[in-house]
Amino acid sequence: MNRTFYRAGLRALPRARAAAAVVAAGFALIALTPAVAAADAKPDRSNLCPHRPGRVVCVDQDHQRMWVQKGSRIVFEPVLIRTGYRGMWTPNGTFHVYARHEWPASPLLPYSQFFHRHYALHGSRDDLHKGKSKGCVNMSVADARRLWKTLEIGDTVYIWGHKPGT
Rank of each mutant, 00 (worst) to 15 (best):
A18Y: 02
R45L: 15
M66F: 07
A31L: 10
R45H: 15
C58G: 00
A99T: 02
K163Y: 11
N138Q: 14
S140W: 00
K130P: 05
H51G: 02
V56C: 08
D60L: 08
T150Q: 14
P104K: 11
A19G: 00
Y158V: 11
W103D: 12
R17W: 12
T166D: 15
F76Q: 09
R145S: 10
V141E: 00
P34S: 00
R146C: 03
R52G: 01
F5T: 14
G135F: 03
G165N: 02
R100Y: 01
P14T: 05
G84R: 06
R11M: 10
L13Y: 11
P34Q: 00
A99M: 02
R117I: 11
G9D: 14
K130W: 15
V56H: 01
A39T: 00
V157D: 00
R45S: 15
G84S: 03
E102D: 03
L128K: 01
A20W: 07
V97S: 01
A144D: 09
I159H: 02
A18D: 08
G165A: 10
V57K: 06
G54P: 06
H118D: 14
T94D: 00
L128Y: 02
H51K: 14
V141M: 05
H118V: 09
G93A: 08
V157A: 08
G165E: 07
R145M: 13
G26S: 06
P107L: 02
P91A: 04
E77Q: 13
E77K: 14
L128H: 07
T4S: 12
A41Q: 15
E77G: 07
V22E: 11
H122F: 09
K149N: 13
A105I: 01
H118S: 08
W67T: 10
H116T: 03
L29D: 03
G135S: 05
P104T: 12
A99F: 09
A19H: 04
S46L: 08
A24Q: 04
W160D: 01
V68R: 04
I81F: 03
D127T: 03
R117C: 07
V68C: 01
L109I: 07
V141T: 09
V68K: 05
G26Y: 13
N47L: 15
L147K: 13
C58A: 05
V75N: 06
K130Y: 14
T156R: 01
S72A: 12
R125W: 13
M1A: 13
A41N: 09
P164M: 08
M1G: 14
P104N: 12
K130C: 04
Y158E: 13
V141P: 04
R82I: 01
I159D: 04
A25G: 08
K163M: 08
A144L: 08
P50A: 03
P43F: 05
Y6N: 15
Q69S: 00
W89F: 10
P110S: 05
P78Y: 09
L108R: 12
L109Q: 03
M139A: 05
H118W: 06
T83D: 00
F5R: 15
N138C: 06
R55M: 09
R55Y: 06
D126I: 06
H101P: 02
P110M: 02
S124T: 00
G26D: 11
R125T: 07
L109Y: 12
